[in-house]
């Protein structure tokens, strides 16, 4: 990604969706899209890969379930054998509820913290809002200018078809944050 990006602001989600699709098909690199709410179909228009978070969730859940089953087995029937109601030491049914809870807990926490990590979210982070109105009623598409095919005039005229409200160039900081 270069340090120069183009910000295109739209008033309607349909325009944003159509423009995103057209820009991607035109061979330009889309940095991100900012919307006040989740716009259905935007991930498809942007050509995003399927989320890998589901795998994090699944693996964390399996780790929780299998890890807890092993731990319960080890504590109750290997390290210190417990007689509960005359049941065998190695009683699988009694281990299942805790294993289930551990699976849910690890899957939940794993997904949330993996999301925080990949989107670099942490307590005390200063929000970088490119335009206050993206939290209200504006839709902003951010296009990378690095591409050799990038032609500002052509992009502007292409965006006009989708009723773009404003087109603005910005420079990003070395950390990749928009200013």
């Amino acid at each position: 990604m270069s340090d120069r990006v183009l910000l295109a602001t739209f008033e309607h989600e349909d325009d944003l969706l159509a423009a995103t699709d057209a820009v991607r098909r035109g061979g330009f690199e889309i940095v991100d899209a900012f919307t006040p709410y989740a716009v259905h179909g935007l991930e498809r228009a942007m050509g995003l890969r399927p989320s890998r978070l589901t795998w994090v969730c699944f693996l964390c859940g399996m780790t929780g379930a299998l890890g807890m089953l092993w731990f319960e087995h080890w504590t109750a029937s290997i390290d210190w054998q417990l007689d509960v109601g005359g049941k065998p030491w190695n009683s699988l049914p009694s281990d299942v509820p805790v294993a289930f809870e551990a699976a849910v807990l690890l899957a939940g926490f794993g997904s949330v913290f993996a999301l925080f990590a990949v989107s670099r979210l942490f307590p005390g982070k200063q929000p970088q809002i490119i335009d206050p109105r993206i939290t209200d009623d504006r839709f902003v598409l951010v296009i990378d200018e690095a591409n050799a095919a990038f032609d500002a005039a052509a992009v502007r005229s292409m965006l006009q078809e989708f009723h773009v409200l404003a087109v603005e160039e910005r420079v990003t900081t070395p950390g990749g944050e928009l200013q």
Binding site: G85, G86, K87, P93, S94, V96, P97
Partner: peptide
Amino acid sequence: WFSQYMLIWYSN
């Protein structure tokens, strides 16, 4: 299914 099974198995 498991809730029904486990309660009965546990109380025996």
